[in-house]
Amino acid sequence: MVTLEDLRTPKKNTWCPGCGNFGILRAFTSALVQLGVEKDQVVIVSGIGCHGKMVNYVDVNGFHGIHGRVLPLATGIELTKPSLTVVGFAGDADCYDEGWGHFSHAIRRNIDMTLIVHDNMVLGLTTGQTTATSQKGFKTKSTPHGSIASPLNPVMHALVSNGTFVARGYSGDVKHLTSLIVEAIKHEGFSFIDVFQPCVTFNYLNTFDWYKARVYKLQEEGHDVTDRQMALKKSMEWGERIPIGIFYQEESPSYRESLPQIKDINLTETSIENIDIDPILQSMT
């Protein structure tokens, strides 16, 4: 069984002190320990941004890919080797700006993986510009007069894309986030967690205090996770009170389960010697 110590890497952490990313790192590693998985059976995939450093900080298999492409990269891994636990870590710009096109598609395919978005509502690594989730009026170097566009609502989008596990966490509540990650990894199909991750350096608006005053837990208020309509209603709640927790969950066959030739086979273990193409050749004569 893996321990927190096992999951540590020798890499020096370069996140700003107090950054919300630490909470996600702690929650993820704690979740792996709780799940009792073997660390060599876990693959993490990350995009480019502060969040992307996750691959350097957790000692499991990892692919630090390019900006915005966490989902297709993880899809390729998951489909060919289902025995692996595949978890993607993306940034809000990474997933909701550069990679937005992949988001709905991974959800509607119901790829059996977990996606954790470090949603700090800012481009961290490029020194603080506006992203798809930045609040209207948010002033940054790229929007000195305030962001004009209205923010995307990723949770709502996941719900209308027929997401089978849709959740939101807050990195200031590591215990709660850990339990969400545990449930997400256990879920068969695409699990999505948008995580409020305060960027202490560039996001002056959505701070720990800001969230603390607003977030409440859906599961403490008797929310029915099987009711998509109610989940949609909850996903629109924004302002004085903002819900976190599991919005919606259902059992539905994953993409792979609909491929009779694959199902639970690790394609990596099938022999590629002596493939018989004669039937196709015959059809061409």
Partner: peptide
Amino acid sequence: AGASYAGV
């Protein structure tokens, strides 16, 4: 790329 990294 993901599939190849996984080994196929």
